[in-house]
Simulated assay, not measured.
Amino acid sequence: MSKNSEPTLSRTPALRALVPEPDRYLIVAGLGTPCFDAARLTDDGDNLFAIDGAMGTATAVGTGLALAQPRRRILVITGDGELLMSLGSLPTAATAAPPNLSILCIDNAAWGLTGFQRTHTSFRTDLAAVAAGSGIPASTTVAVPADLPAGKSLLEDDTQVTFVVLRVPPEPPEPYAFERDGPLCRTRFRDHVLGGAPSAAVTR
């Protein structure tokens, strides 16, 4: 899908269409509105590690988790503002190449929690193109309903690192309660990772 197409998808239903079975994944959410999105998607489940205090780290944390847990499916849910702070994490993910890693960037072209200042994606930056140029082998943009099946399929691909941009209009954030106590969130997530059955076997 062209970056120039006007997005027509609302973020919550689009996210549910792209990730209909969130329990299949260990999910790392980037600071800001993506934490609300991921908590709503999982009902703040034990499989969610919401990064509430370190902007720009979600993709790096997700890459490390994918390398440490090669038999689990890892999904990073981040936003355009969060990812723009750490674009170097994309070539790192591409170089490490864990096949169990998928990255979903919800791009509303704005910093939604701080006053809707425009991000670079509202001008010329195309994050799917940045991911491809970083060496991520499969990337796509989802902006209209017809794009959803391809985006869902890419996120479920367990043979390579994948990257999906979900472009949405700059709507006001919809807050959703999630565990914001860092040590408690870490312990809850660690217990889930070490004590639960694998989310989904990764074929090699």
Rank of each mutant, 00 (worst) to 15 (best):
M1H: 10
S2T: 12
S5W: 05
S5T: 10
T8W: 01
L9A: 04
L9M: 09
P13M: 11
P13L: 11
V19W: 13
P20R: 12
P20I: 08
P22E: 11
D23Q: 06
D23K: 05
R24C: 00
R24G: 04
V28G: 04
G30V: 08
G32M: 11
P34S: 07
F36T: 06
N47Q: 11
L48D: 01
F49K: 08
G53V: 12
G56L: 10
T57F: 04
A58L: 12
T63Q: 03
L65H: 09
L65W: 13
L65I: 11
L67Q: 14
A68N: 02
P70V: 07
R71E: 09
R72S: 00
V76H: 10
T78C: 15
T78Q: 13
D80V: 04
G81I: 09
L83K: 12
L83T: 14
L84D: 05
L84W: 00
M85V: 05
L87K: 02
G88H: 13
A93Y: 07
A94D: 03
A97W: 09
A97F: 11
A97H: 14
P99L: 09
L101R: 06
I103L: 06
L104R: 04
D107P: 05
A110C: 14
G112D: 12
G112L: 15
L113V: 05
T114V: 06
T114Y: 04
G115N: 05
F116P: 05
Q117P: 02
Q117M: 14
Q117N: 13
H120M: 12
H120T: 02
R124L: 06
R124K: 06
D126I: 08
L127M: 02
A131M: 03
G135W: 03
G135V: 00
I136L: 09
A138E: 04
A138R: 01
S139W: 04
S139L: 00
V144F: 04
A150G: 05
A150Q: 07
G151Y: 06
K152F: 07
K152T: 08
S153L: 00
D158K: 02
T159S: 11
Q160H: 07
F163K: 07
V165D: 03
P170Y: 09
P173G: 10
A177I: 02
R180N: 00
D181G: 00
P183S: 03
P183I: 08
P183D: 01
P183Y: 11
P183A: 00
C185N: 14
T187L: 10
R190H: 11
G196F: 01
P198W: 15
S199D: 00
A200G: 06
